[in-house]
Design a protein around this nucleic acid. Structure first.
Lengths: 199, 199
DNA sequence: CATCAATATGGACAGTGTCAATTTAAGCAA
DNA sequence: TTGCTTAAATTGACACTGTCCATATTGATG
């Protein structure tokens, strides 16, 4: 296996994505500059342009992949086959929260509209795919029931997304707390199911 | 009133803040560059440095003021003097949602940790002030009740913050919908109070 | 082998934040 | 008033960024 000529990388596109993910995870989205990615691979600063025309396009590819990961994490959880709808909704919530807390910079990127090519068809498709299981979990009943199911879905999704966002921003203290043995996130999900019963 | 010498602006600090707010509202946080702000006031590109050492410091001042605005909007609402706690919690939620939807770029800036000097004492103080009314609305009862009250508070705050964030990112469709005459946000707040009662 | 298109290169440009040396003038003490 | 100190503004510079361009290399196809 002789040393290949180094001029053409061979698989630069994938290498760029890997390197960009590494930078994203370690330094956040600001760390993902075209030149830094190129530098980390030892290629010219303008080499990436052949595969990602702009920085936005690169970040969009990262976000698309991240949406993909999140969605399949949810799907995996749901395939364990719990029957109870309430349990299935918890799986959805747990999956999103786990992904957000484990991959903070990826999760943040998902919602950085200013960094993304928001009309990229692949990105849009993956965003839709994320909502699909949630919608599916709520679609049933007649017209009126659907209306309130929609509201329940938005309520759940809002709470989950808000909770993760606040946690990632360090706006919930203490960060890692428990409520009678359960992590806080389980408690707030239950609160939504049962109502906070303000008396 | 003769024309003053133009070398010294006289009140550059306030003028910078005003101009920066204008840019923030119109173009988002990316539009708030030191040089753009200076340009819009017709001063040298490095004049702002005398008042805000770095861009982060300028944005931090904007965020601090925005927190202030949001907090006083909440306080104003609460001073109308509704007795029912449930109603008072709704006032909190409504105030945050209204501020977020009316000042999207200011609201977004509040949570852009990467753009802010997150250990600035003024900023921290204003952030605390935001949570104060929410905490106050829940503090009562014994130890165990407090624990669950805390959970309710986090649940409500998470849902409100998540809802605004999703709306601002265009992730809730349709954007402006109603549920039996009420805007969607009222419906999800009610959902949290009463529970989504997944059967 | 010859050619072509894809891919990588280096150089350039405008924009940015930030630093440094300098100039201006306002405020204050004598 | 005069003179000094100092805050506040100036210009200039540097390194970094994204993006464009002309050029060079090479893999693949005829």
């Amino acid at each position: 296996m002789t040393e290949k000529s180094t001029y053409h990388h061979g698989n630069l596109r994938d290498a760029l994505l890997d390197a960009a993910f590494e930078l994203l995870d370690q330094e956040g989205v600001d760390g993902v500059t075209i030149r830094a990615v190129a530098r980390s691979l030892g290629v010219a600063h303008s080499a990436p342009a052949n595969h990602f025309k702009t920085r936005k396009d690169l970040l969009t590819a990262l976000a698309t992949r991240s949406f993909e990961q999140l969605t399949s994490a949810i799907q995996n959880g749901l395939q364990q086959g719990l029957e109870d709808r309430r349990e299935r909704l918890k799986v959805f919530a747990d999956s999103v929260i786990a992904y957000g807390l484990n991959h903070p910079n990826r999760y943040r990127l998902l919602w950085r509209r200013d960094c993304l090519a928001v009309d990229d068809p692949d990105l849009l498709a993956q965003m839709d795919a994320l909502y699909e299981p949630l919608i599916h979990l709520f679609e049933q009943g007649d017209q009126k029931e659907q209306r309130s199911a929609e509201t329940s879905g938005i309520a759940l999704w809002s709470m989950v997304h808000g909770y993760v966002s606040l946690r990632l921003d360090g706006n919930l203290v203490p960060l890692n707390d428990e409520v009678s043995g359960e992590p806080r996130e389980r408690a707030i999900i239950d609160a939504l199911f049962d109502g906070i019963a303000s008396k």
